[in-house]
């Protein structure tokens, strides 16, 4: 475990908790894509199938449980919470994410480290995480609503991606057998999509601040 990966895990966790707290505090999920949050929950559920079989460390196990619980809590809030669900932009969050899930699963069947259930689902979760932001990106382009997508959320999400890439570079130079091409290539694609999301976030945020200024 290196500091970059630890910091990356922490910023990733904080970004999820910021979103969860924001939804819970404002009792609103306007501008947030339920589909992206469902994809994230699916990423954690399919990636941590080894939660009860492989014990890596207490940290690893605790973090897996926290990631699964927090991502499911966001989905539950957006689907079931009587107040929150009313503010969901159902008719704007129309990205057909089932095709993305299917494409990632087919790719995982073809490109994986070992053709076992666990490895195929692990590769699936890696590919899915890379494209999970797409419904949120589409919703942001359509609604321009950044009320619940706070700047801190975007900041920590960016920090998570950046730190993980530094972690891979660090491990590449310090460990001889570090070959995680699936995670690295997919992670780079994910970071590229996040950069696109951040760009549209900035545009929406700029427009909103202009709109909010006294006319």
């Amino acid at each position: 475990m290196n500091i970059f990966r630890f910091a990356g895990d922490m910023t990733h966790l904080i970004s999820i908790l910021i979103l969860l707290l924001k939804i819970y505090a404002t009792k609103s999920c306007a501008g947030i894509s339920l589909k992206t949050q469902e994809l994230y929950a699916l990423v954690f559920l399919t990636r941590y199938l080894d939660l009860f079989t492989d014990y890596v460390s207490l940290y690893n196990t605790v973090m897996k449980i926290v990631f699964i619980a927090s991502s499911l809590a966001i989905v539950w809030c957006m689907r079931r919470h009587p107040l929150v669900r009313r503010s969901y932009d159902k008719d704007l969050d129309t990205f057909r994410h089932q095709y993305v899930v299917l494409a990632c699963f087919v790719l995982a069947l073809l490109l994986n480290e070992k053709f076992t259930i666990q490895e195929v689902f692990w590769a699936f979760s890696i590919y899915l995480e890379a494209v999970a932001i797409l419904p949120q990106l589409v919703l942001l382009q359509r609604s321009g609503n950044v009320d619940n997508l706070t700047g801190q959320y975007v900041l920590f999400l960016g920090a998570y991606r950046g730190l993980y890439i530094i972690n891979w570079i660090y491990r590449y130079f310090t460990e001889d057998h570090f070959t995680r091409w699936i995670a690295c290539v997919s992670g780079l694609v994910q970071t590229g999509l996040y950069a696109d999301f951040f760009y549209y976030y900035y545009l929406s945020w700029k427009t909103n601040t202009k709109l909010k200024l006294p006319a």
């Binding site: 475990m1 990966r5 895990d9 990733h12 990636r47 080894d50 079989t53 492989d54 014990y55 890596v56 460390s57 690893n60 973090m63 897996k64 990631f67 480290e113 666990q118 490895e119 692990w122 972690n167 995680r180 995670a183």
Partner: peptide, 10 residues
């Protein structure tokens, strides 16, 4: 700290 499945990253 490697897991049997070799995935030690979250």
């Amino acid at each position: 700290e490697e897991a049997e499945s070799g995935h030690d990253e979250l």
